[in-house]
Each structure stands twice: as structure tokens, then as C-alpha cells.
């Protein structure tokens, strides 16, 4: 199966968002979009030009954007808010908590430039805590797709789901490897490779890194099960427990702090139902810094070699 998921070119996940938003805008008249002065960065021009009456430029006022989105949702619209992940979460946590999550508003919080792969802008913009913040909110769905096609599919799928959603994607040009016709189901993990020695659960950009690691490890005779957890909440408990019951050990990989991320969600599940040795590939209680995406992934322990080392370490603990 590793042969199925090969790179067919590179595009940013945020471009997948822009394409998905335009397409769902064509299909569903209730879809509206809001931006806080980052139209180009979020790739929302096509939607804006096609549906100007359903597009709202809010200005640099993210708190107001979340409130307006809550109001649009109250009146039956399906609002998609756009800004960087940092400004989509930490800056507006209370607005999301009260006006959206607690009030059960059907708002889609669409967050680009998440994680260290934002690159040169540095740590002020490289949020690594957003998954944790958002998954703690009752009723919030948290999705972190892994490539252009999956982000496009997820952007369209969330319109059909009633309730608040946090959709996290990124800035850099990134390998495309999920076939375009792959169905996106919220909360359903995607098996990318069957294996028997270790389960690698990865989300976002780190899914490609995990696949690269699995290819290298396969050549060394290690059989890796690679599962794409695009939906961190609700977690696909069944897929995770099924896999771990077979492999008996786990590596998680994400572009996020160890604290509060995908790894923690999986650890919580396993601790309750199926304790197993586990290693985290995640940022270890640190802010990022300026650099290129690949340099930063390497420096902060999120590269292919880090996944390979994590697998080797966890295998020793089985």
C-alpha cells in the first residue's frame, strides 16, 4: 500500500482549502466566508469573486469575526472564518468558547499557517497549542488534514456536519499523495499502510513524514502500520485500538506540542483500554523560531529521522 500513497506533485494545504471553499460555495447557497485581512494567504479570492454577497472582509479584528460568524450561523448560514491558526484560536478563545462552542453555532473555524512549517515569520505566528485548545472545547470537532486533496475534501465535508469545527492546515507547498477520489469521512481514520510491528498514527503535514519513515523502515524489515488520523476529535477509537491490538506499540506524529495534541488523545485512549509502549513525535514544550519549514521540522524533532528513531525506540520497549 505504500506504493499507493506517493507524491504526485506539491501544493499547499491552504490551496486545498481555497479550492474546497469555492466548490462548496457553488453547491451550497448557505455557505458564507469571512476573512480577517488575510484573503490571499487563505486562498479565498476565488470564493470572494464568485460570491461577493456571501463574503465578508472583517479587517484585523478576529474577535469580531468570530462573533459575526456566530450571528450568521444563528440565522442559518454556514460561516467559514479565515485567518492564521494563531489568530483563529488563542487570540479568540473566549469568543469561540462562549459565542460558538457553548452556543452550539455551526461555525467552521478555518486556520492556516499552523505549526512550525509557517517558517520564517517565526514563533509569534507558529502556533503549536491550537489542537489542544480546540479539542478541550465540548462539542468542537477538530480536523487536521494532511495534503491538498484531503484539505479540499475536508473543507467540503464539514459543511454537511452541523456543529462547530476547527479545520487546521498550513502554509508550505507540500507533497500531494492522497488520491483525489478518496472519500473524507469526519472521525474515520484512513489506513495508509498495513503493518504488524508498530502503529504510526500521524496527522497533518506529519503524515507524509510518517510515510517516508515507513518506507525507510520497510527497507530495513520493519513492518509499519501507518494510519492518518485527520480527525483528532472525535477520535476514531475503534481504528486505533484495532491497530494497537495487532502491533502492540505506538508512535504518534504531529506538528504540535506534545502537551494536548493527537499523541495525548491517543495515550488517554490506550491508558484506558489497551496500555502499550508509545513514543511521541511532537514539539517538546518549546516555541519555534524563524527558518525554512524543512529546517524547522528537523530542528524541532519532527523530521523523517525522528519518526524512524521513535519507531526503533518503541520497538525496544515492546
Amino acid at each position: 500500500m505504500l506504493d499507493k500513497y506517493v507524491s504526485t506533485g506539491k501544493k499547499a494545504t491552504r490551496n486545498g482549502f481555497g479550492a474546497g471553499l469555492y466548490e462548496i460555495g457553488q453547491q451550497n447557497d448557505e455557505v458564507v466566508a469571512l476573512i480577517a485581512d488575510l484573503l490571499g494567504s487563505l486562498k479565498m479570492q476565488q470564493f470572494k469573486e464568485a460570491f461577493p454577497e456571501r463574503f465578508f472582509q472583517i479587517g484585523i479584528a478576529e474577535a469580531n469575526m468570530m462573533g459575526i460568524a456566530a450571528g450568521l450561523a444563528t440565522a442559518g448560514k454556514i460561516p467559514y472564518t479565515g485567518t492564521f491558526a494563531n489568530f483563529s484560536t488563542g487570540r479568540v478563545y473566549d469568543q469561540i468558547r462562549q459565542s460558538i462552542a457553548y452556543s452550539d453555532k455551526n461555525v467552521k473555524i478555518c486556520a492556516s499557517h499552523a505549526g512550525v512549517t509557517l517558517g520564517e515569520d517565526g514563533a509569534t505566528h507558529q502556533i503549536l497549542e491550537d489542537i489542544g485548545m480546540m479539542k478541550m472545547l465540548p462539542g468542537m470537532t477538530v480536523i487536521n488534514p494532511c495534503d491538498y486533496n484531503q484539505t479540499k475534501a475536508a473543507t467540503m465535508a464539514i459543511a454537511e456536519h452541523h456543529g462547530p469545527v476547527y479545520l487546521r492546515f498550513g502554509r508550505p507547498s507540500w507533497p500531494m499523495f492522497i488520491p483525489e477520489d478518496t472519500k473524507f469521512e469526519i472521525g474515520k481514520a484512513l489506513l495508509l499502510n498495513e503493518g504488524t510491528d508498530v502503529s504510526i498514527f500521524a496527522t497533518g503535514h506529519l503524515v507524509w513524514i510518517a510515510l517516508e519513515a515507513a518506507r525507510a523502515l520497510t527497507a530495513e524489515g520493519v513492518s509499519c502500520e501507518v494510519i492518518n488520523i485527520h480527525t483528532i476529535k472525535p477520535l476514531d477509537n475503534e481504528a486505533i485500538l484495532d491497530s494497537v491490538s495487532k502491533t502492540k506499540c505506538v508512535v504518534t506524529a504531529e506538528e504540535h506540542q506534545r502537551n494536548g495534541g493527537l499523541g495525548d488523545s491517543i495515550a488517554q485512549l490506550l491508558a484506558q483500554h489497551q496500555p502499550a509502549p508509545m513514543e511521541y513525535v511532537a514539539v517538546n514544550d518549546s516555541f519555534g523560531e524563524s527558518g525554512t519549514p524543512m529546517e524547522l521540522l528537523d530542528k524541532y524533532g519532527l523530521g523523517t529521522k525522528d519518526v524512524i528513531n521513535a519507531v526503533k525506540n518503541v520497538l525496544k520497549r515492546k
Binding site: 469580531n64 462573533g67 456566530a70 452556543s103
Partner: peptide
Amino acid sequence: RVASGSLGQGLSVAIGVALAKKIN
């Protein structure tokens, strides 16, 4: 129609509903 208590948020929500009314 929306929770309030943490201050400063209701005006934004009201604007959102007002915009939706205009679209509709």
C-alpha cells in the same frame, strides 16, 4: 439565541444576524 456573560461579544453576534437578514 447565543450565550452571553463574558462581556463584549453580543454586538458582533447581532451584526452577524443583521448581515444574514440582508442576504436573505
